[in-house]
Design a protein around this nucleic acid. Sequence first.
RNA 1: GUGGGUGUAGCUCAGCUGGUUAGAGUACCAGAUUGUGGCUCUGGGGGUCAUGGGUUCGAAUCCCAUCACCCACCCCA
Length: 372
Amino acid sequence: MRGVGEDTDIVEKEMYTFRDRGGRSITLRPEGTAPAARAYLENKLYAGPQPVKLYYLGPMFRYDRPQAGRYRQFHQFGVEVFGSQHPGVDAEVMALAMDFYRRIGLSGLELHVNSVGCPACRPAMRDRLREYFRPMLDELCPNCRQRYERNPLRILDCKSARCTELARQAPTTADCLCPDCRAHFAQVQQYMHDLGISFIVNPRLVRGLDYYTHTAFEIMAPGIGAQSSVGGGGRYNGLIEACGGPPVPGIGFALGLERCLLALENQRRLPAVQPGPDVFVATAGERAAREGFILLAGLRAAGVAADLDYQGRSLKAQMKYAGKLGVRYTVILGEEELEKGTVTLRDMASGSQREVAESEIVQVLAGLRPGR
RNA sequence: GUGGGUGUAGCUCAGCUGGUUAGAGUACCAGAUUGUGGCUCUGGGGGUCAUGGGUUCGAAUCCCAUCACCCACCCCA
């Protein structure tokens, strides 16, 4: 975590840290960008063809007090591109994120985009902000008074009503960008237009740490509680170097899967869960039960999702159970069928039944493709 | 880290200002003529009332503490 920074909140409050049996201090990863950067460095991926495009998907951890949309263990999907500062890559990364949301069925999202400058324009940006806020310093919230010293950019981001009010006339990042950053941001926007992706330029969107440069973006979903961000990312041209590597540019995004689920639920777009098996094997009598057990294995081997009763239920109860499972077909096997070498195939929706030779039932059901 | 709320059956909850064997709906199980689900009816199983203390003749109910969960603040690398 060395590369991430030493903000006290991050280290002391949000990281999930504990001691293991050997007394070592263990911290569960809170996000994926730093690990991805480490992978890039440790495996010397900068020595190969650039850019390098990576993705990750997995559990992350933070020790906050939980609330709606914020869990101590959650899952993130993210991508990182190392080794290119081309503005088209910025657009590509944002497009990939938006395409993901679109494909899972989310709509009405807001993509906020900004440029937070680079080491060349950041000092001037800070100076101008300090200059602006100096006369109203004691009107700012205690938090922002600290931000004034440490990172005045973040004052723009404050949610306190008074600070927001005071910051209304403040110079924005857009006013302070150096020519290079301004050009880069303009091109990013042009590429976004080329891709037909709508976005909102939000000059108050800020990323805290120094290795963030140029593009910053965040995707908001209304209606899922106080934690409305479903994903975000940005360019970090200083990160690899800050981690002890060569000066390689990078950009990426991460999105929270649980928040996507919350948003899907809120929009009533959660897909129905796949119901249970497609076929149930109901039997009557001991011999039939054994025969059914073998038949079940045959069905499964043929790729049919099937199940049977292990609770010793009566045939009637088995039918009831099959109904609750929601299967489309029930195969009924009892003494009568055993005598004739057949099974009864019942369509649960219509209630119609027909006799099928036991030797053919697997093939018949596999052919019916009872799955979705 | 700060504030508020909630913990009673698998699930959703009721249980008034302390008073008999803690309830409902739902789910589960079994029956309603012998081998057939969905509707209905009947019966049944199931709770250390979050945990630990305390007050009281008596606590699910009142008090304290702890834990967990929920919501918000903070923050979001």
